[in-house]
Amino acid sequence: MDERKAIHEKLKKKEQEIQLLEEKLRAARIYVQALQDVLKMLHPDSPPETGESVMKSGSAVAKAREIILQRGKPVHINDLIEAMGKEVTRESRASLTSSIAAYVRRGDVFTRPAPNTFGLAELGHSTPGEQPTHQPPQGFGKISPVPPPPKSDMDDDIPF
C-alpha cells in the first residue's frame, strides 16, 4: 500500500508541475502576442520576425478573432458566421472552420475548447488536450471489502 501511495504522490506532484508549466506557457504566449501587437502598431508595414502566422487584416479569420475578443469567451462557428453578417451555410461553415482549424493545429492564435467552438489562446481558452486531467474520484484504487453472501437454507457442503 505504501508503494501505491508513493506513486499517487509522484503523480499528483507531476500533474501540479504540468499545470504550472501550462500556465507559464499561456502567459508567455500572451506576452509574445502583446509584443507582436506593439511591433505592428510601431511598424504596421513590416513583416513579423517570428515564426507565428499573421492574419490578413479584414479577412474572415481576423474578423473571427475580433468577435471572440469582443465576447471574451469561445464562440460557436454558427455564431461567428452570423456575427460577420453572413448566411450560415454548409460552405460558409466549412470554409471558416477549415481556416481557423489550421491555426488550432499549429497551436497559434485559436483554440478549440469544444466541437465547432473556437476560442483564443491569448484569452486563456484551452483545447481539451491542453488541460490537466481531473483528479480521480474519492477512494479510486482502494479495494472495498466484499460483503458476505446472504444466508440461505441450502446445504453448505455442496462445493458449487
Results as ranks from 00 to 15, higher is better:
Val61Phe: 01
Ala83Gly: 00
Ile77Phe: 12
Glu66Ser: 09
Gly129Phe: 06
Glu66Gln: 11
Thr89Tyr: 03
Thr127Val: 08
Asp79Met: 01
Phe110Arg: 00
Glu91Ala: 11
Thr97Tyr: 14
Arg106Ile: 01
Arg93His: 03
Gly72Ala: 08
Leu120Thr: 13
Arg71Val: 09
Phe110His: 10
Ile77Gly: 01
Val75Glu: 02
Phe110Glu: 00
Val75Ser: 03
His125Glu: 10
Ile81Tyr: 12
Ile100His: 00
Ser92Val: 01
Gly107Ser: 09
Phe110Gln: 00
Ala114Phe: 11
Leu69Arg: 13
Gly124Trp: 00
Val109Ile: 15
Arg105Leu: 11
Arg93Ser: 12
Pro115Met: 06
Ala94Lys: 13
Lys73Met: 13
Arg112Met: 12
Asp79Val: 05
Lys86Tyr: 13
Pro74Tyr: 08
Leu96Gln: 05
Gly85Trp: 06
Leu69Phe: 04
Ala62Lys: 06
Tyr103Arg: 10
Tyr103Cys: 11
Met84Cys: 06
Glu82Arg: 15
Glu82Asp: 06
Arg65Gly: 02
His125Ile: 00
Arg65Asp: 03
Glu66Met: 13
Arg65Pro: 02
Thr111Ser: 15
Leu96Val: 05
Leu123Asn: 03
Met84Pro: 08
Val88Ile: 12
Gly129Trp: 12
Pro74Met: 14
Gly72Asp: 08
Ile81Asp: 10
Ala94Thr: 10
Thr97Ser: 15
Val75Cys: 12
Gly124Tyr: 12
Thr117Phe: 12
Asn78Pro: 02
Glu122Val: 09
Ala62Met: 07
Glu122Ile: 03
Ala121Met: 15
Gly129Glu: 07
Gly85Leu: 10
Ala101Cys: 12
Leu96Gly: 08
Val88Leu: 05
Glu66Val: 02
Asp79Ser: 13
Asp108Leu: 05
Pro128Ile: 02
Ser126Asp: 06
Asn116Lys: 13
Pro115Gln: 08
Thr117Val: 15
Val61Gly: 10
Pro74Val: 14
Gly72Tyr: 00
Glu122Lys: 09
Ser98Met: 15
Ala83Met: 07
Gly124Phe: 02
Gly107Arg: 07
Asp79Tyr: 01
Leu123Met: 09
Ala64Ser: 14
Leu96Glu: 03
His125Ser: 07
His125Val: 04
Arg71Pro: 04
Gln70Asn: 14
Ala94Met: 12
Pro113Lys: 06
Ile67Tyr: 03
Thr117Leu: 15
Pro128Val: 04
Gly129Tyr: 08
Arg93Trp: 10
Lys73Gly: 02
Ala114Leu: 14
Thr89Arg: 07
Ala121Ser: 15
Met84Glu: 05
Pro113Ile: 12
His125Asp: 12
Thr117Cys: 13
Leu120Arg: 04
Asp79His: 07
Ile100Glu: 02
Leu80Gly: 03
Pro128Tyr: 09
Pro115His: 05
Leu96Trp: 14
Ser126Cys: 08
Glu82His: 14
Val109Ser: 00
Pro74Asn: 11
Ile67Val: 11
Thr111Glu: 04
Ala83Trp: 11
Lys73His: 15
Ala121Asp: 08
His76Tyr: 01
Asn116Cys: 09
Val61Thr: 11
Thr111His: 10
Ile81Lys: 10
Leu120Gln: 03
Ala83Arg: 13
Gly129Thr: 09
Gln70Asp: 14
Thr111Gln: 07
Gly85Lys: 03
Gly119Val: 15
Glu66Arg: 11
Leu69Asn: 09
Glu82Ser: 11
Leu80Ile: 15
Ser92His: 03
Glu130Ala: 02
Glu91Trp: 05
Glu130Gly: 13
Ala62Gly: 09
Ser99Gln: 14
Thr127Ile: 04
Glu87Ser: 10
Phe118Arg: 05
